[in-house]
Design a protein around this nucleic acid. Structure first.
Lengths: 339, 339
DNA sequence: GACTGGCACTCACTTATGCGGAGTGCCAGC
DNA sequence: GCTGGCACTCCGCATAAGTGAGTGCCAGTC
């Protein structure tokens, strides 16, 4: 059954009021606050239809109506326009982000900024190794039998690992190895490196085979296997604000948020410059079924190196949140493009 | 007024019962559960004295007694022995920590381990830069006018910063600079470096003065000013478990926990192998006055490179928590000593 | 003097009962 | 198809009464 325009208006009004007041909204209040040009009784009839279709529901008989997940979905898809950010917000983003000194700082600032602007929980994925390329590999001798391998990715991310050598190497040997691995690997996408690393063994002088072998093992681990993608989180205190939203469910939500693996799922398939909205039930993760997630990919230009987003009660200001997430993601993308 | 032994026994019993049940404890229940060899009436008299002295209090007339912060303090100082860890716990520590691959991993595992074992919020400070020494400085040319400075500390911690050069440098120039700064700075305690960095300017060929100047600015920032000490946090979900403990105060606590500056205060003056217990009111931080913090320093051998601890309701199992924090800190210290 | 049993009292917590109000569904009329 | 009117439902809140754990105090005992 098709919903006529007025019914959609009613739904929109219900969502907006409920989001604002957090209280079930009744027909009378509705006509007063929005200038629907009809009487409460008419609105009630519309509401009955909307309820039948599953877009709203009553917490109990003779209470006002509350949007269902399905109702929010319709609202997000068809009834709302993304609100442009206020100049103040734009300025806040610039002011806050422009002081970032390195990647770590960028990520930290981003996540805190998002949490602050949206007043929800913010989640930012560090630029993912698997989507970046090697900028430089550094070998630092710690002793004659021990190296530290430092990998610098083009996103600015730095990873380091210890390498225990089977034999000893002097400074010149290390320099040779350093030159060699950079020659072969610098500039490659991380995902392309494994065969190149294998090939390295043949390039090296026989004396250095064992060392190279130890090194390449660690290289592979660092470059590929170590998928362990990092996540930054902020604003969990905002969950406690809406205590009404999460009656007894706060605990499992906090627990889910501490599991990095779980969070990474949220960004599973972030698409370039696409904002994704996951509402309540739609969430794969059981414990997050009472929440909504607004997420997007980010990165320099059109490339996506990671995801960021916010998580809050299904009762959230979708247009505002979507706008904020997009704006921040774009800004961080530009920042990464510069460096 | 001195408290005789039995009164102390009563206090101990009250603390233990209250910690276990989370409910005000009455005189009758007390004699039943602990074999104090006296009647409830006698216990009541003792309780009256303890209350007068401020060690316990009644939530309301005709309720059982609850320990005050002062009561916990006495308990911790004089009435409890640190519980030895169970073999299972020891094994858990080893099993969990031995898979750590680098410093980041050590810290992450430590904080999660602590949270899990104590069922509280765990806080671990990354090995602090200011207490460590420079192991190696690396310069990586990103373009002819841009370098990445990577500092490796003896604790395994790695920091990086971008350096924009006023002019251009080729690979050999960079190599020269690298050699120079390592010659002068490697092995120094970070706190000792500022004068050495100043001196660097005179050591360098006049052509490279401007470059060195830019570099030394960043060096100073990285080595010293950048006190921004990092913190890892886990187990915030455990706060929600004791919802009874933190009625409306959960939000401010979560907020305080997100402020790294606040957390660092907790470790302000960690002392070597000293476990510090901060109970309720004793905490400097307003919002954390309803919580207790058990913290200790850690590091290789007797050196302290950072702090770790747990935070929970004042109603916590102090002997168990203290034992766990100590054991984990010692284990991590040993781990750092090895590398 | 220290401990005990007894007893009256206090006060949170629970259950029962009543009431007001917001909101609904339905219907007859325009 | 919209509206005003009306009876009905049920939540939320307040008041009232009952229950019980726990106390403070006192007089009595060892």
């Amino acid at each position: 059954m098709a919903l006529d325009d007025r019914k959609l208006d009613v739904l929109r009004a219900i969502v907006e009021d409920y989001v604002a007041t957090q209280e079930p909204v009744g027909s009378k209040a509705l006509v007063e606050r929005h200038n629907l040009r009809v009487s409460p009784a008419t609105v009630r009839n519309d509401m009955a239809v909307l309820e039948e279709e599953g877009y709203i529901r009553q917490p109990h008989t003779s209470a006002g109506r509350v949007p269902t997940d399905r109702g929010y979905r319709l609202f997000v898809d068809r009834l709302s326009r993304v609100k442009p950010l206020s100049p103040a917000e734009r300025r806040a983003i610039e002011r806050f982000m422009d002081h970032a000194v390195d990647l770590d700082d960028v990520v930290h600032r981003t996540v805190r900024l998002l949490a602050q602007l949206t007043r929800q929980v913010a989640i930012v994925q560090y630029p993912s190794l698997s989507r970046s390329t090697v900028r430089h590999l550094e070998l630092v001798p710690l002793s004659t039998t021990r190296l530290m391998l430092v990998m610098i990715a083009d996103t600015g991310r730095v990873d380091q690992r210890l390498v225990d050598l089977p034999g000893t190497l002097d400074a010149d040997d290390v320099a040779d190895l350093r030159r060699l691995i950079n020659e072969k690997l610098a500039g490659c996408a991380l995902t392309d490196t494994p065969p190149l690393v294998e090939a390295l063994l043949d390039e090296v002088a026989p004396v250095h085979r064992p060392a190279m072998s130890a090194l390449s093992t660690v290289l592979l681990e660092t470059l590929v296997e170590r998928k362990e993608e990092r996540i930054a989180l902020a604003g969990t205190a905002n969950l406690a604000r809406g205590l009404l939203d999460f009656q007894g469910t706060l605990r499992p939500i906090l627990e889910a948020l501490e599991e990095e693996v779980v969070l990474l799922k949220l960004f599973g398939e972030v698409e370039p410059s696409m904002t994704r909205v996951l509402i309540g039930d739609e969430n794969e993760i059981e414990d997050l079924r009472t929440t909504s997630v607004v997420s997007t990919g980010y990165g320099p230009g059109t490339i996506v190196v990671g995801g960021m987003g916010v998580l809050g009660p299904t009762r959230m200001d979708y247009p505002g949140t979507i706008a904020t997430v997009r704006a921040v993601a774009r800004y961080v993308g530009d920042l990464l493009a510069q460096s």
